[in-house]
């Protein structure tokens, strides 16, 4: 995430290890993009609504993308089947919410949140088990072979998507929002949808928790060290494979959470939800720099901003504008916003 200056003084007393030089430049992109969009949109109320929507959407994309980028950073495995976890998580949550219909319809925030929490728990538990199995069966035999990895995980995605058709049927399913989360809060002229606030809170919580785990625990230290240099961590006697399985399972669980949030945001659910989001997720992890959590977070917000602003200004070219964003950023920094050292 941060560039490191490894120069040591020649002879004499060793200089103190240089402090991390923080790189704040990419962070400025977010307000810059917002500032550029303001005169184009012209109406400040719309602009605020769109920006808040972008932040909420960005958080959801971040939840989905963070696992994928960590898995890549740690083990050089690019999982094209990540979209399957998004879809499976969303379907599991929907199935859990069906018997809880009373809780959802009740106009009590606590009961609503309890139902949602339960659904999210089931979704995350389910996707982590499936993620574990996926890692065992699909990915383990093809470590270190990028070409086969891409092919195999794409195959896995297709099979998973078709199995969803088999178990849940192919038709579009409703994914109703709990009563207390419907509608919007109005502050002055600006209406903020309640659910977007919730999504933002959840996404921020995941980001903070992830930063804490990565920066303040031994596990996080090992993961970060593994991203930088896998062999060195192994040489120090840690079993990086176990660490990797743990990260993979956590990433799958986060995809399940993200899928649930996304489906609630759209309020409908189809088996194609995974492949729909995964394109945005890929753009995000490329822009952010493969393997970088901070870059992933920033890129999620940027991509969501572009998607929302252009969705309002020129809805037909929304996805194409994100490709343009990717091209511009790669021209500026070919490795993404924050290049991970050693790769």
């Amino acid at each position: 995430m941060v560039e490191q200056d490894g120069a040591t003084a020649a002879g004499g007393a060793p200089e103190p290890i240089p402090a991390h030089r923080a790189d704040y430049l990419p962070i400025l992109l977010v307000p810059l993009l917002a500032a550029v969009a303001l005169p184009l949109i012209a109406n400040p109320v719309t602009w605020i609504t769109l920006t808040i929507a972008a932040l909420a959407m960005g958080m959801m994309i971040f939840v989905i993308a963070s696992g994928l980028t960590l898995v890549f950073g740690l083990m050089d495995v690019l999982n094209f089947g990540h979209g399957a976890f998004i879809a499976i998580g969303a379907y599991l949550a929907m199935t859990t919410l069906i018997p809880l219909a009373d809780w959802i319809q009740a106009d009590q925030l606590a009961l609503n949140l309890a139902a949602l929490g339960l659904a999210i728990l089931v979704a995350m538990a389910g996707t982590s088990v499936i993620g574990w199995a996926f890692e065992r069966v699909i990915i383990m035999p093809v470590y270190g072979q990028h070409l086969k990895q891409i092919l195999i995980t794409t195959g896995g995605l297709i099979v998973a998507e078709q199995l969803i058709h088999v178990f849940w049927g192919g038709d579009q399913k409703p994914m109703p929002l709990p009563t207390a989360l419907r509608g919007a809060i109005t502050i002055g002229d600006v209406a903020v949808e309640k659910y977007r606030l919730l999504a933002m809170v959840v996404g921020l919580a995941v980001f903070v928790a992830m930063l804490l785990v990565l920066n303040r625990t031994k596990l996080g230290l090992l993961v970060r060290a593994g991203v930088e240099n896998r062999e060195m961590v192994e040489a120090l006697g840690y079993r990086i494979r176990r660490l990797f399985v743990a990260v993979f399972v956590a990433g799958s669980a986060l995809a399940g959470l993200g899928g649930t949030l996304w489906a609630l945001y759209r309020e409908t659910l189809t088996a194609g939800i995974g492949s729909e989001v995964i394109v945005l997720v890929f753009i995000v992890i490329i822009i952010g720099g493969l393997g970088s959590i901070g870059g992933c977070f920033l890129a999620s917000v940027l991509v969501a901003q572009v998607a929302n602003y252009t969705g309002y200004l020129a809805p037909k070219v929304a996805l194409a504008s994100n490709i343009l964003l990717m091209v511009i950023i790669l021209m500026w920094r070919p490795q993404g916003l924050y290049a991970v050292v050693g790769r």
Binding site: I138, G155, G156, I158, V159, Q162, L163, H165
Partner: peptide
């Protein structure tokens, strides 16, 4: 569901 079986075959 023939895509399912093609996917399995592919993997």
């Amino acid at each position: 569901r023939w895509l399912l079986w093609l996917g399995v075959l592919f993997v």
